[in-house]
């Protein structure tokens, strides 16, 4: 019999596909657009600001419609983060991300989609992104002991 977890996998796969289409159409998979947006001054390219302006109203509307429901469709509980605490790791991690984003011109989603498209720089970025994630685990283990 089909169970919730099977539908979850199908839903997640479909969301991944639609998300990648959005990334490609929006221009997020073109590092020169990302850098052109982050680089202030003459020749500033504001277009990527409109990606958030397209995404947030749609998602905010659905969120406020959905949040009163008891459960999502394919699960018995919600998994939306509820923490409100501003911590040092949050700020330092986000600052590091901002720097890496400007240095490479990729954030994680567009890098994965572009790697799928065979863009060599994205393949390099994704491989080393996993290295960074593993380093974070190693660092966490050392800082605990």
């Amino acid at each position: 019999m089909f169970q919730h977890k099977h539908f979850q996998v199908i839903a997640a796969f479909s969301v991944g596909l639609i998300f990648s289409l959005g990334l490609g159409i929006s221009g997020m998979t073109q590092p020169q657009k990302v850098i052109g947006f982050l680089q202030l001054g003459e020749g500033w390219d504001p277009s990527l600001m409109f990606v958030m302006m397209g995404a947030i109203p749609v998602h905010a509307l659905v969120y406020y419609f959905v949040r009163g429901k008891k459960t999502p469709l394919f699960d018995s509980k919600w998994h939306v983060p509820t923490s409100r605490e501003i911590t040092k790791p949050l700020v330092i991690g986000s600052a590091l991300f901002g720097f890496g984003w400007a240095l490479g011109g990729f954030c994680p989603g567009p890098a994965l989609t572009s790697a799928g498209a065979g863009a060599p720089s994205a393949v390099i970025f994704v491989i080393f992104m996993f290295v960074g994630m593993i380093l974070r685990r190693v660092y966490q283990r050392f800082s605990k002991s």
Partner: peptide, 27 residues
Amino acid sequence: SILMALAGGALIGVAASLMLLFNGRVT
């Protein structure tokens, strides 16, 4: 560029909304 960014962004919003609605998760 701006129209494509808006349209692509809206699609990203739809994808994140489906993840929330179906799986109850943040994308």
